[in-house]
């Protein structure tokens, strides 16, 4: 029984990291439709921002989170304004362009911050562990779970309960109709892209104490994030959550029985099989068009 519960907690922990990494991507891909291959590098920027704030400014991780969200979000806003906006008519070119941005970011970080691994300290208040029903769990992993859940709720609220969200969903369904009712589609898209990018930065910063920070770290996350989003169904925020935690649990169990590498391979095979028979992902909105 104890072992089962431990496994559930491990899965939740993996799942919440996956959700953090995928949330921004899910919002950008599900609304603007841009396949953002630089998503991993935006996560990496967040992690480096956490490291740089601590190293050069002396701001530690938790108080720095808001700054990191705003900073990386602003960067995303610029990328959308300057580059992506011109490419919406050519989806293939956006893939190439975002991939290019990713490569550039990796090299810029390598040249400025160096290629070695960097480490971000755990916030001292969360370095300990907490006992839940007799299972010792790291306090920081619980923090990640709470933050991931909160960010999901905030994003859901913005998209489904605010006027901005209504405008965004209108533009997604029919850009022409939305703008003929006074909605500035360009501005809505910029803000959405900036928000999604800011979330990626936040994810990177929050994950950074658990993983080593390197210029290439984004590559792994972008793959994981895409697996989560595609499995969950592209336009479903809810699907992203279910998919992140299911993948987390499955990965956790297989890693426990075998090891991480096998777990990764089996999960990938599972996803491919699901997509083969359900290309739209697990969750889709059903409405007559």
């Amino acid at each position: 029984m104890q072992i089962v519960f431990e496994q559930v907690l491990t899965g939740l922990s993996i799942g919440s990291i996956l959700l953090l990494a995928a949330l921004g991507l899910s919002i950008i891909y599900g609304t603007i439709g841009v396949i953002n291959l630089a998503h991993g590098e935006f996560i990496m920027l967040g992690a480096y921002a956490a490291w740089a704030l601590k190293t050069y400014v002396g701001v530690s991780l938790l108080p720095g989170l808001v700054l990191i969200f705003l900073g990386v979000g602003l960067f995303g806003w610029l990328v959308e304004r300057i580059l992506l906006r011109r490419l919406y008519q050519q989806p293939l070119d956006t893939i190439l362009a975002t991939w290019g941005i990713g490569v550039v970011l990796q090299q810029v970080i390598r040249l400025t911050a160096g290629g070695d691994l960097r480490y971000v300290e755990l916030p001292p208040s969360m370095a300990g562990s907490v006992s839940i029903l007799g299972v010792e769990t790291s306090a920081y992993r619980i923090f990640i779970f709470v933050v991931a859940a909160l960010l999901f709720l905030i994003s859901w609220f913005i998209i489904y309960r605010t006027t901005f969200g209504l405008k965004l969903r209108a533009v997604v369904q029919d850009r022409g109709v939305a703008s003929s009712f006074g909605i500035n589609a360009d501005r809505v898209y910029s803000a959405t892209f900036a928000y999604g990018t800011g979330l990626a930065g936040l994810a990177g910063a929050i994950i950074s104490p658990l993983k080593s920070v390197s210029p290439e770290m984004g590559t792994g996350y972008v793959v994981d994030a895409f697996m989560v989003v595609v499995l969950g169904g592209v336009q479903s925020l809810f699907g992203t959550v279910i998919s992140a935690f299911s993948l987390g649990e499955v990965t956790g169990v297989i890693a426990f029985l075998q090891n991480d590498t096998i777990a990764k391979a089996i999960v990938l095979i599972l996803i491919i099989s699901v997509i083969r028979f359900r290309p739209q992902g697990l969750f889709v909105a059903k409405v007559r068009a």
Partner: peptide, 16 residues
Amino acid sequence: LPQFTVRENLKLGTFA
């Protein structure tokens, strides 16, 4: 807009 309710479609009219 097919995914919007009638209420949301009407709300769209108020933005302009």
